[in-house]
Simulated scan of single mutants.
Amino acid sequence: MTNSDKLTLNSGVNKDVNVQCPRCVGSTAHKTLANATMSGGDGQMDWHTDYQILQCNGCKSISFRSESSNSEDFDHYIDTYGNDELVYRITEKLYPPRIYGYSGLGEDRWLLPDSLRRIYDETSSALTTDQPVLTGIGVRAILETLCKDKAADGGNLFKQIDDLVSKGILTPARASVLHQIRTLGNLSAHEVAPHTPAQLSLAMTVVDHLLEEVYILPAKTQRLFSGLKPTANPRP
Rank of each mutant, 00 (worst) to 15 (best):
V133M: 03
N83F: 06
L143E: 01
H76A: 00
G185Y: 01
S226A: 13
D208W: 01
P230Y: 07
M204A: 06
L9H: 04
N3C: 04
A173K: 06
E191Q: 13
Y81M: 12
V214W: 08
H179Q: 12
G12A: 14
M38T: 06
G101N: 08
L146W: 01
E122P: 14
L157T: 08
R65V: 14
P132Q: 04
C21N: 11
A175P: 05
G154S: 06
L157C: 08
S11H: 07
C59Y: 02
Y215G: 03
L9D: 06
C56Y: 03
M45W: 03
R109E: 11
A175F: 02
S166G: 01
I62E: 05
V17M: 07
D162W: 06
R117I: 12
K167C: 09
D121F: 05
G106L: 06
H179G: 08
I181E: 08
K167W: 11
N10V: 12
I53N: 11
L112V: 06
L211Q: 05
H76S: 04
V192N: 08
D79H: 12
K6V: 15
A29C: 01
D42R: 05
D75H: 03
N156Y: 00
Q160G: 04
W47T: 08
W110H: 15
Q160I: 01
D50S: 13
K60T: 14
L7Y: 09
M38K: 14
